[in-house]
């Protein structure tokens, strides 16, 4: 693995800690090391200025009452205590979690179904359909939000007109608090294209002889799916599960565009589309409660960390890694 420079040291069994530190320090006397750090320097500087520094600053801010105008006063944990009793934090958190619980599995199931269909058409036409499915994903989310308002309009929207063909009276998607989030989920299923492309690539990597052997043994299509396809692509499924969850918890663009333009809109006042990041943005940049918003950001960070850790733990039981 390591190149010739360190090869002789590997012959000696397990260098002890002192030896490793000595080698580490010796490494810094080599010109190559300095050259390497020169190449890395832009990222290191950027990390310090725009990540590490702001993280510390954000935590300190979260302990103050900073409002962007006066100077900040330390208030201890008051912001965090206030978070717990702020009904809008609870509401926005609930909205975000409910939405994520719908959109993440929804996206995964629809994308997998489409990928499996594409996996059965010839390579040429698969390329064509793949392009077609991906197209909505290059549409800016702002435009998706605008589109939602029109297509999902309760009275004159295309969706309800379509449902009407089957004699179904569609709900008022954009104003009924119970239907806003399901509507947004449906709208977002339009942009599953990227996930379809990922799943298709994973499906193409499943060795065909596995299916042939299973068919010889008389396994039904469902059992082939359940015991070959699913385990073989579980790595990719798990990856998208984590990435989609993190993204869903930070939903902003389409909901903010659709519902936070005019304070007169029904959904604005019912808070049905108040996602966590929208409330955080309002607190930080509209009410200028930057200390409070910083505390909100850390709560979000904590929630994302916990959810991701749980996902990783749980996945250990379900994800199959070839040769691992």
């Amino acid at each position: 693995m390591r190149a010739a420079v360190t090869a002789p040291a590997k012959v000696a069994a397990e260098p002890d800690r002192k030896e490793r530190i000595r080698r580490w320090r010796k490494g810094f006397r080599r010109r190559e090391t300095w050259a390497a750090y020169a190449f890395l320097s832009p990222w290191i500087i950027g990390f310090l200025i725009f990540m590490a520094g702001p993280m510390v600053a954000s935590f300190v801010l979260s302990l103050t009452d900073y409002d962007a105008l006066g100077s900040p006063n330390l208030v201890g944990w008051a912001n965090y205590e206030q978070l717990l009793s702020d009904p809008k934090v609870a509401k926005s958190l609930a909205n975000t979690v409910v939405y994520s619980l719908m959109v993440v599995p929804g996206t995964m199931i629809v994308a997998l179904a489409l990928a499996m269909v594409l996996n059965r058409v010839g390579t040429r036409s698969a390329g064509f359909f793949r392009t077609l499915f991906y197209l909505p994903e290059v549409t800016p989310k702002v435009a998706v939000g605008v589109l939602f308002l029109m297509l999902f309009n309760g009275q004159v929207g295309l969706i309800n007109e379509f449902l009407g063909l089957f004699g179904i009276q569609g709900p008022a998607w954009s104003t009924d608090p119970d239907w806003v989030k399901p509507g947004l989920v449906l709208m977002n299923l339009w942009s599953v294209g990227g996930t379809v492309v990922l799943y298709l690539a994973a499906l193409k990597n499943v060795p065909l002889d596995l299916y042939e052997a299973a068919e010889l043994d008389g396994a039904s299509p469902w059992r082939r799916f359940r015991h070959i396809t699913l385990p073989m692509i579980s790595g990719t499924l798990f990856f998208t599960f984590i990435v989609q969850t993190i993204a869903a918890l930070q939903t902003f663009d389409e909901a903010y565009t659709a519902f936070y333009g005019s304070t007169a809109s029904a959904t604005y006042s019912s808070d049905a589309a108040l996602f966590y990041l929208i409330y955080l943005f309002q607190q930080a940049f509209q009410f200028l409660h930057m200390g409070y918003a910083s505390a909100m950001a850390w709560l979000l960070f904590g929630i994302i960390m916990v959810i991701t850790l749980v996902q990783v733990k749980v996945s250990k039981r379900f994800v199959y890694y070839e040769g691992g």
């Binding site: 702001p54 930070q250 950001a297 850390w298 979000l300 991701t308």
Partner: peptide, 11 residues
């Protein structure tokens, strides 16, 4: 992994 929201305000 770091949500942009954490660094947004200081930046």
């Amino acid at each position: 992994m770091l949500p942009a929201a954490v660094t947004m305000i200081p930046v």
